[in-house]
Every structure is written in structure tokens, then in C-alpha cells.
Computed example of a mutant assay.
Amino acid sequence: MQSFKRHRRLRQNSAIRRMVRENHVSPADFIYPIFAVEGSGIKEEVPSMPGVFHYSLDRLHEEVDQVAELGIGSIILFGVPEEKDACGSSAYAEDGIVQQAIRQVKERHPDLYVMADTCLCQFTDHGHCGVVENGEIVNDESLRILAQTAVSQAKAGADMIAPSNMMDGFVTAFRQALDEAGFVHVPILSYAIKYASAFYGPFRDAAHSSPQFGDRRTYQMDPANAREALREASSDVDEGADMLMVKPGLAYMDIIRQVRDRFDLPVAAYNVSGEYAMVKAAAERGWIDERGVVLEMLTGMKRAGADLILTYHAKDAARWLAEDV
């Protein structure tokens, strides 16, 4: 009789499958995005992102309390100001929406790990991630304002700065500014690899940050490129990044794996708004099993090499994982 391998022996029941499972997803792996807005009494659902809301500061605790109770490891704060200008001055204001949100969260939940997204697109009237001169997004002047923003976020109490602007040299600029301001202990999660992706549409709805002219392809990466991703990550490692982000996650798992294999820093994947919205839309129509698809997707990102996952699914996933314990 011809001999063959019986791989199914290790799949016979749930107990043995759990015993030999190679990759695990935990609420402690999640970074949950929260959108803070100016005003009062506001809890408004983002139309393109069911289950994701804008919260005014007086209602922000409703969301943050849930996150803490579910054991989610950390949050990242995005701010949507009422007024914008050409240089995004409210991004670095002491009383800016992000700075106020950071202070409020840390006062209520001092042990919750709070990250601050550091970009200008939500704060500029043109919707780009840097300063515009003669129709061009200029690099070095943008770095000055972005670094000032990072310091203001650290002063407000952010545990980690997460720059997503994709300006050349931003890690160097941020590290120098933070160190000079006395924040040598504040780490930088670099959005080292951020593609000019079609998956960002719902986020721009949530953050009111669509570009008012052109697009972001002069500073975000071409989705066709992989070697360029490693060059970007290598630069950020050399400049002092503490962690590396790949964004988006689902369509770029090959990039997550290459970054994981090449560098020894922790790697995060951003399970972005378009990925979230697709799942939600299909689930609402009964076309997919939302729980199964989400947990499979998040497990895939872990298998690809992500240590952390920034995801809008975090609260639902944490509840589902608790049911499996």
C-alpha cells in the first residue's frame, strides 16, 4: 500500500486545532482609531463606515471606556477641527482638538496607551499632508510644522507619536524636535510605508481630509512598488524610528512579510477604512459572515508578520475573541 501523510490528524477537533495554531490574535494587538471633533453633544456615525463615529470631547469617554473594558491595547487619536488654514496651524495648537482629546483620555484612563496621528491633512484647507507653495507640496517647510505638531502632542501626554505624512526625513525631524523638547522617552511609530491607495476613501469622509486639488501621489507610494517600500523603511530605521507601519494592510501582506523579514523593529499593519467598509457593506447584505471574515483577515495580517494591527474592527473583534475563550 502506498504511504501518504495524514495531516488531518491535527485537525480532528477544536482542542487539537487550538493546540497547534501557529498565529494568534489578541485584543492587546489592536490599535483602535478614534475621531474627536469640536462642538458638544456629538456622536455622529460616519456614513461610509458603519459603527465608526465622530465624538465631541464631552462624549469621548463613551468610546474610550468601551475600549478600556474590552482590553484593547491602545488607541490612536485623529482630530477634526472646525476651522482650517493653509498651514494647518490648529494641528500644533495647545488647545487643538487632538491635544485636548489626549489630555482628557489620559486623565480618565492613565494606563491606556494613547498614540497621536501626526499629519496635517485634517487641518489644512487644501487637504494635503504638508505645506503648499505654488501648487507643490514642499517637503522641508512641512517638516518644521509637523515636528512642532509632534512636540505639542507629546506635551499633551501622548505616549507615542505616529507620523503619517510621508515627507522625506520626517523621522529625523521628529526625533530631533522631541529630544530637544525633553521627550526622549516618547517613541515614534513611523508610517514608513504608506501607499497612494484607493482604500482610503472612507477615512477621508471621516477626517474631512480629501485633497482640494490633485492627489497625494507625489509623496505617498506607488502601489506597484515593493523594493521602494524597503528603501523607505530602511531610511526610517536609520533615522531612529521605534516601530514601522505598513498601510494599507490587506492588499499589501507581501510588504508586511518583507518588512518583517528585513528589519527587527516591531511592525504594525493598518487595516484601513476601505477594507473595513467593504466588509461592513457585504455583511449588511448577508453576503459574508462578518465575524469569520474579520478574524480571518486579522489573523492573515498577523501571519504575514504584523505585531500590531490598527483596525476599526477592534471592538467587535475583541468581543468575538472573548467569546472563544
Rank of each mutant, 00 (worst) to 15 (best):
M1F: 04
K5Y: 11
H7P: 08
R11Y: 15
R11W: 13
I16T: 07
I16Q: 03
V20F: 09
A28M: 15
A36L: 10
E38T: 09
S40E: 14
S48A: 11
G51F: 00
L57W: 15
L70A: 10
L70G: 12
I72E: 06
L77S: 04
D85Y: 14
C87T: 15
Y92L: 13
E94V: 08
Q99F: 12
I102S: 06
V105A: 04
R108E: 15
R108G: 11
H109L: 01
P110G: 03
Y113E: 03
V114R: 01
A116D: 09
L120F: 10
Q122G: 13
E133D: 12
S142E: 05
A147I: 06
T149H: 01
Q153N: 07
A158Y: 01
I161N: 11
A162T: 01
F174W: 08
A177R: 06
D179V: 09
V186A: 04
L189T: 03
S190I: 05
A192F: 07
Y195F: 13
A196K: 07
Y200W: 13
F203E: 14
D205E: 12
Q212W: 03
T218S: 15
Y219A: 12
P223F: 10
N225Y: 12
A233F: 02
S235K: 12
D236V: 07
M243N: 00
V246N: 06
V246E: 09
V246C: 00
V246G: 05
R257E: 09
P266G: 00
A268S: 06
N271E: 12
M278L: 10
G286K: 10
W287I: 09
L295Q: 04
K302R: 04
G305D: 08
A306H: 07
D307Q: 14
R319W: 05
D324F: 09
